Simulated assay, not measured.
Amino acid sequence: MERREQQGLPIRYADRGDGPALVLLHGFMGSADYWERVVPLLEGHFRCIVPDLLGHGASEAPEGPYTIERLADGVFRLLDELKIEQAVLLGHSMGGYTALSFAERYPERLSAFGLIHSTPLPDDEAGREKRTAVAERVLREGVRPFVEQSAPNWFAPDNAKRMTAELDRVLEIGFGTNPRGAAGAALAMRERPDRKRVIRDSKLPVLLIAGGEDGIAPPEKAFAAENPRTTKRVIEGAGHMSLFEAPQELARQIASFAESL
């Protein structure tokens, strides 16, 4: 996906299509390219703004640790630079944590927000220890061993076996992550707070999408909070990566939600 660089911003982004603004945030070890199969299905009706979050893709990867708030502030600055007053903000996995931080502090800049294969829950103690181990490992070994080991688990088991081209693409994108950025982001996720109340207290429409076979953010975690304007959808047969496992269905759900606002 072609990226542009805004003068003075630490992040790069893609800007595709016309219509209401739809901001799509990728997950850990991803980039704007995570959305490369979804954006073509949306850009005929929406202006899709797709950044490489701090530390990922072609964006800057300064020394960490980062915070989820810092990632969200980068998105806020991007909307300011693009003079976008309001947008629908959707985040995949780590991007969902970022969307929640944005919605907590800048709700006036949103017409709606949502989580895709993500959760408002914080890490438990075991999860926090794993984040620390990941940060230490990628700084010690580089990102390749971690991505090779982890990426198959991001797909539903059957999909990991048969979707070899899709898995190879996720691996390729992951290998491009700067180890500093990966470590900084892992520690940011480790420190994120419980944000169930952001969803519960919000007056905005919320979209929650889960994969029926997601072992990382299963439906019970993805749907841990809701408000009266929440839309909940399960993509059956998908794991944590419906962006590659079921892009047409994911795009359909996003479009249906955004068009209903």
Rank of each mutant, 00 (worst) to 15 (best):
R4C: 09
G8P: 07
G8K: 08
Y13F: 15
D15F: 11
G19Y: 06
V23D: 03
L24A: 02
L25K: 04
M29V: 12
M29T: 13
M29P: 01
G30H: 03
A32N: 14
W35Q: 00
L42A: 01
L42C: 02
R47P: 03
I49F: 04
I49G: 01
I49K: 01
V50M: 06
P51S: 14
D52Q: 05
L54W: 04
H56S: 14
G57S: 13
E60I: 08
P62K: 07
T67H: 03
T67N: 04
T67F: 02
I68W: 03
I68L: 03
L71V: 10
L71N: 00
G74A: 09
V75G: 01
L79N: 03
D80V: 08
K83H: 14
K83L: 12
E85A: 15
Q86F: 04
Q86A: 11
A87N: 04
V88L: 10
L89D: 01
S101V: 02
F102A: 03
F102P: 00
A103T: 02
R105L: 11
Y106S: 10
P107G: 06
E108H: 14
A112M: 06
G114W: 00
H117L: 11
H117Q: 14
T119E: 07
D123S: 08
D124K: 11
E125Q: 15
A126R: 13
R128A: 09
E129S: 13
K130L: 14
R131I: 04
T132N: 12
A133P: 07
E136L: 06
R140V: 08
E141T: 09
G142N: 05
P145A: 11
F146V: 05
V147R: 00
E148D: 15
S150L: 15
S150K: 11
F155D: 04
N159S: 15
E166V: 13
E166W: 10
D168G: 15
V170H: 02
V170G: 02
L171N: 10
G174Q: 03
G174L: 05
G174M: 06
T177C: 14
N178W: 00
R180W: 07
G181L: 08
A183M: 04
A183W: 02
A183R: 00
G184M: 06
A185I: 10
A186M: 08
R190S: 10
E191Y: 08
R192P: 00
P193A: 06
K196W: 08
V198A: 04
P205A: 07
V206F: 04
L208D: 00
I209W: 00
A210V: 05
G211R: 02
G212N: 12
D214Y: 13
I216W: 07
E220F: 14
A225P: 05
N227W: 09
T230K: 05
K232R: 15
K232W: 09
K232Y: 10
R233L: 13
I235R: 01
I235K: 03
G237Y: 09
P247K: 12
P247L: 09
Q248W: 10
Q248L: 12
Q248N: 12
A251T: 07
I254P: 01
S260Q: 12
